[in-house]
Simulated assay, not measured.
Amino acid sequence: MGKLELYAIDVSAPCRAVLLTLKALNLPYEYKLVNLMTGENRTPEYLAINPHGTVPTLVDDRVVLTDSHAIITYVVDKYGTDDSLYPKDLVLRAKVNQALFYEATVVFDRTLLSISKPIFTNNTVVPVAKIDAVYKVYEQLESFLQAHPYFAGEQLTVADFSLVATVTALFPFAELDAGKYPKIHEWIRRLEQLPYYAEANAAGVKQYYDVLKAIGFKVLK
């Protein structure tokens, strides 16, 4: 195989989901920083690769993928030594997909992005209703984890990578109370034990927190 090229920035939750997956598979890749803060994603050179101007983008020879969910499932299918992270069993795969779709639509788009996008475009006042929506997500996640240690069942999958990258980005807006949400807390602690977690997710989360702190935001009650 040729070396994969990943266009990304670590403050991005979708990028961190891809990093977690690549590290889990022990795949070599070339990291190409795309600085969203300086508009590198809108340059003609980058738009020629990804017309959406989004991150992450994965280039694998002639294959170009521009969605984190497509990327993480693709690399497991193509390069995984087994299918544990994205099972081929029809029912198990459906459960992984279900969790991925939930993360993409509810946790990321309707919740995280609805708060963070205005902040990064100089609207730093967050309506309290959006914070309430975060706690609603926590309640749903806590419920999902009642019966199983991971979001698709008994084993770690790419759904957990996608969710943990986004969920940990919600903490600056709504602190996770371990007493109220013990299952989420335990799930995160399990993922933190992965040997690549600190590099692939925790470091980028800290960068994200630092950027938010520098910008500043307040909740309008």
Rank of each mutant, 00 (worst) to 15 (best):
N26M: 05
L20H: 05
V106N: 15
P182M: 03
N123E: 05
V75Y: 00
V158W: 01
V134I: 13
Y29A: 04
K32G: 01
P182K: 04
T105Q: 13
P14G: 02
Y150I: 05
K180G: 00
V219G: 09
Q140R: 11
N41L: 03
N50Q: 09
L20K: 03
L191M: 13
A159S: 11
V128S: 12
K32C: 04
S116I: 08
V55D: 02
A214R: 14
N50D: 06
L92M: 12
E199F: 06
A178D: 06
P172G: 08
V167I: 13
T38Q: 10
T38F: 04
Q98W: 13
K206W: 04
V64Q: 07
A200P: 04
A133C: 02
L90E: 12
N26E: 13
R42F: 14
K3E: 10
Y46N: 07
E186I: 06
V167R: 03
G204E: 05
L20C: 06
V125D: 05
L58S: 04
P118D: 05
L212E: 03
G204W: 07
G2M: 09
Y74M: 05
L22C: 00
K206Q: 14
N122I: 00
K23E: 13
A198Y: 12
S84R: 15
Y150P: 03
G80Q: 01
Q207M: 10
V91I: 12
E199L: 07
R93F: 13
R93S: 06
L156H: 09
K23A: 14
E40W: 08
L220F: 13
Q146N: 08
Y208G: 01
Y196H: 15
L112H: 04
I131K: 10
G80D: 00
N201P: 03
K206A: 10
Y196L: 04
I119G: 01
G2L: 06
A133G: 03
S12H: 07
F108Q: 14
K183E: 04
Y138P: 02
V211S: 04
S84Q: 15
A99V: 10
V158T: 06
V63K: 15
Q207K: 15
E199D: 14
